[in-house]
Design a binder for these strands. Structure first.
Lengths: 341, 341
DNA sequence: TTGTATGCGTTATCAT
DNA sequence: ATGATAACGCATACAA
């Protein structure tokens, strides 16, 4: 990257001097513009290689009003995302496609509540051509971001009724499938557990579960219970198993919760799936490795990332195009945590 | 970020016009330079707020030759890191400190073997003030990066004998502790498993294990075995358990390996710790949640990130200072995977 | 106390 | 086929 002597990067001027031409010519060659003789083209390319010249990003940004950076926003902080395996594959898909398209990834946590109402530095200072928000966060935050005059995408969440691009999974349809499967296995009294906080995915999955129960005329036997901790869920399950018509199967809003509940039940001597059946959601590694392996809803997480990359790139290219809401399909993965009655 | 009308960000010129002063005055106020009257200071600040003005990064970068970006490099790709929980806390520490210091994080995978010998885009184009390489990769790659005239830091790995900043954990000392503990619990025939590939941490831990064994006069009973898969390790363990003096305890180079081996052994009817004892390394969540909970070496992963941030920031400020090799201490976490004989 | 003018590295227009 | 030059947004030396 330097000429090996000074440690100072070569500029387009250095290249021009080396070749003995103008900087306009160098730029033209590098950007494939204008009619330049093959001879000079060759000389310019050689000089670039010799001097280790690459166009400086800041200079180009200033001139082009384009940064070739995409901002990735995590709520409330990067830590939350990094420690969540679910997002790792999404990030992999994003990185692969964005890098291929010659974009850098800029990272930031975003917690509006701590930083008063400041937008992330890279948005304020115009360091990105587009912003991707990863995962769930309060609608108010999403809206604030959507109002920024910059291509914006929600990944694995949605802002319903709003013209904002988003890549989402069909949690409603998926829970419908899960209920169908449980009913087919002979379960009649089923309950879903989700967290207390508001979250697009949790709502959708909850609605899907209820709709599934209703479809089988089970609306009185089914319920969605919101808990603050998994322990709370475990206690509730124990109660429900003592009912006159005991619960025989539960669904958890994600694998993390499902596996943890399963382990806690087992520690209390309740066998899965013999005493109670469990279905998760996400199909993360944890689900495959659990004992017993967890029956769950699989999502193609890498594909979410790839579709996301394609979507924001496309919007950068053509900002006027209609909003996209892309729905990634899911599938039921049958393993060993559900018993056939 | 815009004036609310056009979607085009305000510039320093707009602010100057609004206030009725020169751009130099605006700049001076914003950067706390020169002697500006309190009255104008106030007017400038108000105008900035009114117009939603923030200095544009590209303009400032060009002028200051500083980007306020730190590049984070993953080998061979971001995916590898994201899916490794071990790095999540390190990233959290990095993000926290770097953001606090007003730096952005730029991400990239770096696989020299695929992109011939190209450096990552953000290095080539001068988009970062410093580079942090995360985790193990071939020394040749590290060296190539270290040769770039830019502040450079190795996180959780080292380039021995080379003047490159690095934050490392004392794997040697840690395995010494592990062996001491096993011996104290009555184990005499012990074996360590590590991967086949070269890697700074794995080497250090292996050496520490051997040194520990030697210290107790156990060099003939101890061994470090390199395996390609965990299944290979399991097979080897079964053999070693049939020896005339059977293996009673093993050490794995990390928790991932330790827990997987433990589960595989149990599936084959071998009980941990009754039939064989296991110690891991890293103390990731998996270790705590395993059945039985894994005895392991704990590392303060977040601290690695924080020290890393501090180190690279310090080198950016004073590039001439001597090289730092910072050693993060470890501790033994006793849980239930080791039996006292 | 404030303003003028220059340059950072690039691209693109317009001459030549 | 190539070159001179302006402009992008900013910070600063120097002038007033």
């Amino acid at each position: 990257m330097s000429n090996g002597q000074t440690g100072i990067p070569a500029t387009i001027r250095d290249v021009a001097k080396e070749v003995g031409c103008s900087i306009a010519t160098v730029s033209s060659v590098l950007n494939g513009r204008g009619r330049i003789s093959d001879a000079t083209k060759e000389k310019v390319r050689e000089a670039c290689k010799k001097l280790g010249y690459f166009p400086n990003a800041a200079g180009r940004n200033l001139r082009n009003r384009t940064t070739e950076n995409i901002g990735i926003l995590f709520y409330p902080s990067c830590a939350r995302i990094f420690s969540n395996i679910f997002y790792s594959e999404m990030m992999a898909g994003l990185e692969e496609e964005l890098t291929k398209a010659n974009y850098n990834l800029l990272l930031a946590g975003y917690d509006i509540s701590t930083n008063s109402s400041d937008l992330p530095k890279f948005i304020r200072e115009g360091s990105v051509d587009g912003v991707i928000m990863l995962g769930g966060c309060p609608d108010e935050f999403k809206q604030q971001l959507a109002d920024v005059p910059l291509p914006f995408l929600l990944l694995d969440t949605n802002l319903e009724g709003m013209p904002v691009d988003s890549i989402i999974t069909d949690g409603f349809q998926a829970e419908l499938m899960a209920v169908d499967y449980l009913v087919k296995q002979g379960h009649r009294r089923i309950v879903m557990f989700r967290h207390r906080h508001e979250n697009y995915n949790e709502e959708e999955r909850g609605k899907g579960f209820l709709a599934g129960a209703k479809r089988h005329g089970l609306e009185n036997e089914a319920d969605v219970i919101r808990v603050a901790t998994n322990d709370e869920a475990v206690e509730k399950i124990k109660e429900l198993m003592k009912d006159e018509t005991p619960v025989t199967a539960i669904t958890a809003v994600n694998d993390d919760m499902a596996v943890d509940i399963m382990h806690r039940l087992q520690l209390d001597g309740i066998n899965v799936p013999d005493d109670i059946s469990i279905i998760g959601f996400d199909d993360i590694k944890l689900a495959r490795d659990a004992i017993p392996p967890l029956t769950t809803i699989a999502i193609d997480k890498k594909r979410i990332g790839k579709e996301g990359a394609e979507t924001i790139l496309s919007r950068i290219k053509d900002p006027g195009q209609p909003t996209r809401k892309i729905m990634i399909p899911t599938s039921l993965v049958v393993r060993e945590s559900v018993k056939s009655l």
